[in-house]
């Protein structure tokens, strides 16, 4: 058999997913299939209008967090004058002024950074905890699974806002951006853990895992190289949507008085200050609420689109 013939055969085998031993070991069918899952998903995503709306909004808020000066048209959010207190929006100052007479557009724009940092930081911690705990639980089973699942049950029974409220009130994390993110992650990791766990259990019994084991791969290698890459899709969808949920939760905690504190700039603080003037200056609640909602929506839309793209049942 010539080299050319052998190469053709190998290619056929890989494409058909069969194994006669001719295909060289360097071809990893697992990673091949994974690539095609993600490239299929990307093809789907590209055609989804909602995804693009979400992505553009998300990018807009990312830029707003990175370069707030550009969006506030160079106005300093702390340049305040009581003579302009509570003035309504005008063509000069699109969002009007707050009670202290600070330009409201600049303030709302500068709020994006804290929200986005907290949302992203918390979701990274949630993903780390979810993947590590879920993978251990699903892969090893037995008493490890029982123990970790019960711990997750305990946290699951406590609502996110309540748990974070008590942690932040107790103050041992402090009151900054990191503290709020950690508090949110501490009571928000359980769903990610359950998703990873069930996915790992489902993938664990696949033939290619058995094959890897037969070839003498260690537990760690099987878990990291073979199981996790095929188990992360659902948790990534969940994480995308959760960024939005966490940003909303941060605003809520701050509104309740246990999140970020003045002089930090945060949408939650703005809504809290504005709600007392709801009757005379409704724009003070309206603008931060609007931007907050649009930020949350950006992540919800991207997550929804990603789920549709990754779910083969949706394809026609």
């Amino acid at each position: 058999m010539s080299d050319q013939q052998q190469a053709d055969l190998r290619k056929d085998e890989v494409e058909a997913g069969t194994t006669t031993g001719l295909a060289s070991p360097s071809v990893d069918p697992a990673s091949d299939r994974q690539n095609s899952l993600w490239s299929d998903a990307w093809k789907q995503l590209r055609r989804n209008v909602l995804f693009w709306i979400g992505a553009v909004l998300g990018l807009l808020f990312l830029l707003m967090a990175l370069f707030p000066g550009v969006f506030s048209r160079g106005v300093d959010p702390r340049d305040c004058s009581l003579s302009r207190s509570g003035q309504a929006p005008s063509s000069e100052h699109w969002f009007g002024f707050d009670q202290q007479g600070c330009d409201y557009l600049a303030n709302v724009v500068h709020g994006a950074r804290n929200s986005l940092i907290i949302g992203l930081l918390a979701v990274v911690v949630i993903l780390l905890m979810g993947v590590v705990v879920g993978a251990l639980s699903g892969f090893f089973g037995g008493w490890i699974d029982s123990l970790l699942s019960r711990v997750a049950d305990i946290f699951y029974a406590l609502p996110l806002i309540l748990g974070a409220l008590v942690v932040l009130r107790s103050g041992f994390l402090g009151r900054g951006v990191v503290a709020v993110a950690i508090a949110l992650a501490a009571f928000g990791w359980m769903t990610a853990m359950r998703l990873v766990r069930s996915q790992v259990i489902a993938v664990k019994s696949s033939d290619y895992v058995a094959a890897a084991r037969a070839m003498g791969a260690s537990n760690g290698r099987i878990l990291v190289r073979h199981i996790l890459p095929n188990a992360v899709a659902p948790v990534l969808v969940y994480a995308t949507i959760t960024i939005g949920v966490l940003i909303a939760a941060e605003a809520t905690l701050t509104f309740l008085g246990v999140g970020l504190q003045r002089p930090a700039i945060s949408w939650g603080l703005q809504i809290d200050a504005g709600q007392r003037l709801l009757r005379i200056a409704p724009h003070l609640v309206l603008f931060p609420s609007l931007i907050l909602t649009m930020t949350v929506m950006a992540f919800v839309m991207m997550g929804d689109a990603l789920r549709d793209a990754l779910d083969p049942r949706q394809r026609s």
């Binding site: 809520t252 809504i271 609420s289 907050l292 909602t293 949350v296 929506m297 929804d304």
Partner: peptide
């Protein structure tokens, strides 16, 4: 999608 995206806090004030 819209309703899911509006935080309860915001919805309450609206």
């Amino acid at each position: 999608t819209l309703v899911v995206s509006i935080p309860i806090l915001v919805l309450a004030f609206i």
